[in-house]
Simulated assay, not measured.
Amino acid sequence: MSTANDRPLQRPDVRLLLMPLPDFALLPFGAFLDKLRFSADEADRSRQRYCAWTLMGVESAPVVSSSGVQVTMEATPDSVDLAAFDYLVVFGSRTVQASLGHVHTHGPVLRQAAARGLPLVAIDNASFLLAEAGLLKGRRVALHWRHVTEFRHAFPRIAVASEQIYCFDRDRITCAGGTAAIDMAVELLSRHCGRERAFKGLADMLVDEPRHQGHHLQSMEGGGPDLGRHLVRAVALMRTSMADGLTVASIAERIGIGRRQLDRLFTERFGHSAHNHWTAMRMEHAHWRVTHSHHSLSAIADEVGLGNASSLARLFRRHYGTSPGAARAGGPRD
């Protein structure tokens, strides 16, 4: 006597082609893939019944993650039928420069998929690759907060959804990376498999509920969840407006309080003025860019609103006790 489990598998509700770039981060890759797995079948059987996926590399060789774990590819662009899939999902490399460096090898595949109407999903730094390939024109992009300023500087004509952890914009989906890949996967699966199936397995993943695309990360504020709404908004504006020409006074005006009150709030919470807090944020970003990129000091100074390399070098030495060149020679430090 046959059972339901013996019957032929139905056509999946959604089919995804997954393309991790070399040196990709395991966290968003594993988070996204495991959410698919939980939703793909009944119970915990892990069959690809309701959603299905195939791993694709530009070559058949395994792709190595940033942690050294190798992932076997099931297909290459020459062996796969793009029409058999509903999405092409790209997982970015560990650094922006590495992702951008794959435009010549992976860009043609992405352009071909886009030309055939296949929606593209960019997770983590993969958004830089899509932008470099000319595939994000007229779209809004969700990015990891650390890369918002850099992206705006590199691609000033592409709108950044700076307060979103993922963004659905027609045939382009972008995700900031990390655990936001789970939240984005739930939204995507909800649209194809229904809310109940999309939520399946969250408890097993120790996730209470998926976050909305506009979820605000309290961990970004450096002061805990009790900062208060004025400081939360002020810090968020500072982080996303380093190169926009805003002043502390204009930030105070935007959030509906006076400049003196804003300074008082910063002094009470952080022990320094709003201006000094913003300068420290700028230098933190500049330090990260100096030690994690090969961009010129002039370019980094523009990103953080300091105007020129001399101002950046002077403030850098004051804050870190060393020159940008010496910090860069010491290599990446998180």
Rank of each mutant, 00 (worst) to 15 (best):
R11E: 13
D13E: 12
L16Q: 10
L16E: 01
L17N: 11
L17W: 06
L21W: 08
P22S: 05
A25S: 15
P28L: 04
F29N: 07
A31T: 14
F32M: 07
K35L: 15
E42A: 13
E42L: 13
R47I: 14
R47L: 13
Q48K: 10
Y50A: 08
C51F: 08
A52I: 06
M56A: 15
V58G: 12
E59H: 07
S60H: 05
P62R: 10
P62V: 07
V64W: 02
S65P: 06
S65G: 10
S67M: 09
A75D: 09
T76A: 14
P77E: 00
D78A: 15
D81P: 02
D81Q: 13
L82V: 09
A83R: 08
F85H: 09
D86M: 03
L88F: 09
V90N: 01
V90D: 06
F91K: 02
R94W: 07
T95H: 07
L100V: 08
H104W: 05
T105W: 06
T105M: 07
G107T: 01
P108N: 02
V109I: 14
L110Y: 02
A114P: 00
A114R: 09
A114W: 00
P119A: 02
V121Q: 00
A126G: 00
F128N: 00
E132G: 03
E132M: 07
G138V: 01
A142W: 04
L143S: 00
R146D: 06
F151A: 01
R157A: 14
I158W: 06
A161N: 03
S162P: 04
S162D: 14
S162G: 04
E163N: 15
Q164N: 13
R172I: 14
I173K: 00
T174F: 03
G177M: 02
G178R: 04
T179A: 09
A181K: 07
I182H: 04
M184A: 00
M184T: 00
L188I: 13
L189I: 02
R191S: 14
C193N: 12
G194T: 06
R195Q: 15
R197H: 09
D204R: 14
D204K: 12
L206R: 13
D208N: 10
E209H: 09
P210C: 14
Q213N: 11
H215C: 11
H216T: 10
Q218Y: 12
S219E: 15
E221I: 05
G223Q: 05
G224I: 10
D226A: 13
R229W: 10
R233I: 04
A236K: 10
M238Y: 05
M238P: 02
M238K: 01
R239E: 15
T247H: 04
S250P: 02
I251E: 08
E253L: 13
E253F: 05
R259S: 11
R260K: 11
D263H: 12
R264C: 12
R269A: 12
R269H: 11
F270T: 04
S273Q: 10
A280G: 11
R282W: 03
E284V: 05
H287F: 08
H287S: 10
R289K: 11
S293W: 02
H294E: 14
H294R: 08
A301D: 03
L306S: 04
G307W: 11
L312Q: 04
A313E: 15
R314C: 08
R318L: 15
R318T: 15
S323G: 13
A326W: 04
A327G: 06
A327W: 08
A329Y: 08
G330Y: 03
G330V: 04
R333I: 09
